[in-house]
Design a protein around this nucleic acid. Structure first.
Lengths: 181, 181
DNA sequence: CTCCTATCTTGTCGTTGACAAGATACCGGA
DNA sequence: TCCGGTATCTTGTCAACGACAAGATAGGAG
């Protein structure tokens, strides 16, 4: 464990995602993060500035991952919605900080750029503004309630599918037909 | 500034709601709370046990207020949905801790009872399980995205109305199922 | 008036976030 | 090979915080 760790920043982000996923953003401690990575207590601050900087980097990474998850074009609203829920469930640590308030440096350039990417992906899935807001509300709400434990079940996708199908069914202009391109 | 403040608990809860609404749950400090109320730094702990206890009491109060906001019977899904959004926007401090994770003592008896009340109110507005989950997802998602600043506009209700009307339109128990008629 | 209990205060300890200053490793040029 | 610059990481420190313990005060019951 030399001075130059190699990819300490990545290790710290992964640990942070784990901690946030398990105990929430408020449970994140820079010193605990440093202990998990086996470095000194001030090492994280060098890479991220402060505690909010860690969460900001995590949120930015989350938006990039979300944009990529929504990227597969030609998918209908339902598939895009299921991809949104799947992202939230498989990346709970990222998701928890992506739409929080007071947690991140919301003027951070990298974060804003990443938000733009995920926002563009959403608008591509639902070009009509009112439909976009409605669809986003549905999938975001389901994901948030699932992660909060307010909606439960065996598997998030299994539970989400009929719910999203019902709520998004009246929204999709063209309709999600698998063979239709 | 006597020993017996009278209703210190209420004052502390109000201050906590303000702080959480403005800076998020992670920004809440027991000592700052005490300073705002003009009492000693250990006074809040007497009433709430610990920091999570403050947020637990706030969440419980939020669920009771939400249940009351949804109570007016005979209102359709749209009115109930608008009431949900209106509650979230007018009580951002409460709303922020009602569905958080790791913030509250989620086995607290008062909190569980309050959650049951708001849950019952939701089920009364939408008795069919899949419809209930869909409608809850829509209104919760819109509220969360609005409070996060992800959806913006002049007034939350004004922006929400067409969005909820579009998304909830196909859900109303008496209404026709989308996609086939 | 006396006890009893809830309420609030004072004092303290370990932990944390943030900052400052120093130590170490890599990297390019001569 | 050596030298200087820079990014990376360490050590040291401080005020603030959460939690706990113990004491002081107020209001009510008998």
């Amino acid at each position: 464990m030399a001075y130059h760790h190699g990819d300490l920043r990545r290790v710290l982000l992964d640990e942070a995602a784990d901690v946030v996923a398990e105990h929430g953003p408020s449970a994140l401690s820079l010193r605990d993060l440093a202990r998990r990575a086996g470095v000194s207590h001030a090492a994280p601050a060098h890479h991220f500035g402060d505690k909010a900087g860690v969460l900001t980097a995590l949120a930015a990474e989350g938006h990039r991952l979300l944009a990529r998850a929504l990227e597969p074009a030609e998918q209908g609203l339902l598939d895009a919605g299921l991809a949104y829920v799947d992202f939230a469930v498989t990346h709970p640590g990222h998701f928890a900080v992506m739409f929080g308030r007071g947690l991140v440096h919301d003027v951070d350039a990298e974060l804003v750029a990443a938000q733009d990417r995920s926002g563009a992906a959403l608008r591509r899935a639902a070009p009509e503004p009112v439909v976009a807001r409605a669809a986003w509300s549905v999938v975001h709400g389901f994901a948030a309630l699932w992660l909060a434990g307010a909606i439960t079940g065996e598997d998030a996708t299994t539970v989400a599918r009929p719910v999203l199908a019902r709520a998004l069914g009246g929204l999709d202009p063209g309709g999600p037909s698998p063979g239709h391109g």
